[in-house]
Design a protein around this nucleic acid. Structure first.
Lengths: 133, 133
DNA sequence: CTTGACCTTCCTGCTACTGGAAGCCCTATC
DNA sequence: GATAGGGCTTCCAGTAGCAGGAAGGTCAAG
């Protein structure tokens, strides 16, 4: 398979796949013309990474997950620890965003949004006191 | 004020403030020794930007907010539109994170997390079907 | 006079790609 | 055989928002 085909099948951009090769996630063969040649295992790995990325795992976490996936001696606890840590990070992000959302929604609601210059949003931003911890 | 003092007062890193100068957010004077000299208005602007950053506004949005803040002919509607758009982006992010969280929490729960290799998390990631839309 | 804290500029690196330029390869058509 | 197109290659630059570090100037205290 050439890069275009594997890209389509894996649901990834060809550029992305070249990048993944550059950072050592995949190691496709090369044909006599210099083209990358991907096999089924490569496709499988790329699809795996795509799924993990969609769940928000970083590239390094994807690398670790791939290693675990290919290590048939792994303990599922290693995978679970990695995933649980990522889950916790997601929770932190959600919490932070919700904090922002609370303040912001309040400000937006308070702002009349007309042609007059008076604006509680700007007032808040220029306030001495902190907006959130 | 030197950069160290203004950094502490504004709650920002000195490096960050130099960066903000580089991208044109602030324009401190220079003393005869080449040191940056910040006045109260600079401190005020930096604190403003910090507050906006804490609410998740991008640097470009902060720039726009600063411009509106300093434009006493502004309409509050301009500010409100900007803030409402940002609020919508936050909502999108929260939604995406919650989707990830749903799938991930489920997987983590299903994984026994023991010494055996069998792992539903890896099974899911290597699945042909998409994990989320 | 020296020490240490503070300041300066410049350069690199981080994440995870994306876009573009210059050029080769392959197939099809005229 | 020439040409057109699409796909492939490498390399370089840029994105956001800084952080870290090197090399060196400045300033106040002892």
């Amino acid at each position: 398979m050439n890069i275009g085909q594997v890209a389509e099948k894996a649901g990834l951009n060809a550029k992305t796949i070249r990048y993944y090769e550059e950072i050592g996630l995949v190691h496709p063969d090369r044909g006599p013309n210099g083209y990358r040649e991907f096999g089924e295992p490569d496709l499988h790995k790329l699809a795996f990474v795509r799924q993990a990325r969609q769940l928000g795992f970083s590239i390094d976490e994807c690398r670790a997950l791939l290693n675990l996936y290919e290590d048939h001696q792994r303990s599922s606890s290693d995978v679970k620890i990695l995933a649980a840590r990522h889950l916790a990070e997601i929770d932190v992000k959600i919490t932070e965003l919700r904090k922002m959302r609370l303040v912001l929604a309040d400000l937006v609601e308070q702002c009349s949004g007309d042609e007059r210059p008076n604006c509680p949003i700007l007032d808040k931003l220029s306030d001495r006191k902190d907006v959130a911890s």
